[in-house]
Amino acid sequence: MIYEDQGDMEKSLQFGLIAAHLNPSDCEEWVKLADMSLEQDNIRQAIICYTKAIKYDPSNVRYLWERCSLYEQVGEHKQSMDGYRRILNLLPSTDGEHFMQLSRDMAK
């Protein structure tokens, strides 16, 4: 937090990653670190952070969705499609409209 207050976001991210590894089950911290990574244009690091968050909250569709979007940005389409398939399995049966829209997007 000290580095963040001083405006040194790179050091803040580095120490945040250390802290997150010491308490890996804090999903919100991983998501915060993913956002910080994206602010520094480090998409690969953001993917890793979302992967850690998903490990401890595998049914969170938002985390999966964000990671799939990042995979698409770096051209890893297979991982993106795998993630979208996981999202389809997690969507409730009452959410048919989103299911169909995502299925159409995947087909494209």
Rank of each mutant, 00 (worst) to 15 (best):
I18V: 15
I18Y: 14
I18K: 11
I18T: 09
A19D: 13
A19P: 12
A20Y: 12
A20L: 08
H21K: 12
H21C: 05
L22K: 15
L22A: 10
L22P: 00
L22D: 09
N23M: 14
N23P: 04
N23F: 13
N23Q: 14
N23I: 15
P24R: 06
P24M: 07
P24C: 03
P24T: 04
S25P: 05
S25M: 12
S25G: 00
S25W: 14
D26S: 13
D26Y: 13
E28R: 15
E29G: 10
E29Y: 13
E29R: 15
W30I: 06
W30K: 09
W30E: 05
W30D: 01
W30F: 04
V31Q: 08
V31W: 10
V31D: 08
K32F: 14
K32D: 08
K32M: 12
K32E: 10
K32G: 07
L33I: 11
L33S: 00
L33Q: 07
A34L: 05
D35R: 11
M36R: 15
M36F: 14
S37K: 06
S37C: 08
S37N: 06
L38Q: 02
L38G: 03
L38H: 04
L38P: 02
E39Y: 13
E39M: 14
Q40F: 12
D41A: 09
N42M: 11
N42R: 13
I43R: 07
I43L: 07
R44C: 01
R44W: 03
R44M: 01
A46K: 04
A46T: 02
I47N: 01
I47E: 02
I47T: 01
I48H: 09
I48C: 00
I48M: 00
Y50T: 00
Y50C: 00
Y50I: 00
Y50S: 00
T51R: 08
K52F: 04
K52G: 04
K52Y: 06
A53M: 07
